[in-house]
Computed example of a mutant assay.
Amino acid sequence: MADTQPLGGTAIKPVGWDRSGFEAFRYFVYNPETGAIFSRTPMSWAKITGFYLIYYTLLAAFWLASLQVFFLTIPDRYPRWVLDDSLIGSNPGVGVKPIHSDKHIDSSLYVFYSSDNKQTPTNKEGEGERNADWKTRMDIYMKQYEDTRGLFECPDNNADKNKGKCRFNVADLGACGEAPYGYMPEDETMSPCLFIKLNKIYALSPKAVDVEKLDEPEYDEMSPELKDIIRGADDKEQVFFDCFGRFPADSEAVKLEFFPPTRSVSLKYFPYRGGNYHSPLMGLKIEIPKNRNNKNPGQMVHIECRAWYEGVQHDKKHKAGLTQFEVMIM
């Protein structure tokens, strides 16, 4: 009677199980017994290569088709959703220039030093906290107003046809429009200028405040000084700005001077529709009276600036229609 092998009684070792070292590597590269190259036969390599070629070709075709559908539904030159139909809405925030250094980009505190008269910035980008760094960052921002391609001179009485494409005249900023913008001390005291602007929103075209409604509740928070300025303005087609100390101690400690004195920017600069564009600015000169030693006192003052035009909403939580910042002169 022939010997029988019990089922499962003996493990069957594959051919070459005992190969090791260079012999095992040589058989991995090419196995002459099976014709396998790197553990796969030529037919297996052909099948898997064909599969991935087809798979990734179809995947790329699907991606390109989806991208083409995306491009067909998105305009090239303007946003698909604008103003109230967009997430941004039609109530812009108010911006302040110059910007802070990258290290303090999330800060709203402007610190100047009445004893720092060094003319050299930390680096060519002005990425530091010296007075010269503030000047350098403002110089960089102001360079955009030298590019007048596609823009027009717009007299206030004949600007309708070129609205939104008007050149901004930096000379309108008076003393604040000239470097070093009050950032370098004189006799260990200084009165720096900050620049207020309405943030850009595509197609936003603000309407002027209706003078006849200035005594209505919607304008209760506008200062009496600004109401008088609006009533007496020769050109009322403006976005007006109201800046003040946020708290009683701030109002007592700071003196604000506006450039231009109308506290406004003309509506001829709106709407923004892309391309080369000059954001209109209002200069705000900040003076903190000297102390008994005839020096800047080093007090931090809190300032709020609000934009005023028809229908504007002021939201302190989301900084809509206004901005809040602090200034300290050491």
Rank of each mutant, 00 (worst) to 15 (best):
I54W: 09
I54N: 11
Y55V: 12
Y55S: 08
Y55D: 09
Y56D: 04
Y56F: 15
Y56M: 10
Y56V: 11
Y56W: 13
T57H: 03
T57A: 13
T57F: 15
T57M: 09
T57P: 04
T57K: 02
L58V: 12
L59V: 05
L59G: 01
L59H: 04
L59N: 07
A60Q: 09
A60Y: 09
A60E: 11
A61N: 10
A61M: 15
A61R: 13
A61I: 15
A61L: 15
A61V: 15
F62Q: 09
F62C: 08
F62Y: 07
F62H: 08
W63V: 10
W63M: 10
L64K: 05
L64H: 06
A65R: 14
A65S: 15
A65D: 13
L67D: 12
L67C: 03
L67S: 11
L67F: 12
Q68T: 14
Q68L: 10
Q68E: 12
V69N: 12
V69E: 12
V69R: 14
F70Q: 12
F70T: 09
F70S: 08
L72A: 14
L72D: 12
L72R: 13
T73A: 05
I74V: 13
I74R: 10
I74Q: 13
P75N: 11
D76R: 14
D76N: 10
D76E: 05
D76P: 02
D76V: 14
D76F: 11
R77M: 03
R77K: 06
R77P: 00
R77V: 04
Y78P: 00
Y78H: 10
Y78F: 09
P79G: 06
P79M: 08
P79A: 07
R80C: 01
R80V: 04
R80E: 10
R80A: 13
R80F: 09
W81M: 04
V82H: 07
V82M: 08
L83Y: 03
L83E: 03
L83S: 02
L83I: 01
L83W: 03
D84I: 02
D84N: 07
D84G: 00
D85L: 12
D85A: 15
D85Y: 07
D85K: 08
S86K: 04
S86N: 05
L87I: 07
L87S: 09
I88E: 04
I88W: 00
G89A: 05
S90Q: 06
S90W: 01
S90H: 06
S90P: 01
N91V: 03
N91S: 02
N91P: 01
N91H: 03
P92D: 06
P92H: 04
P92S: 05
G93W: 01
G93A: 05
G93H: 01
G93T: 03
V94C: 01
V94A: 00
V94H: 02
V94M: 01
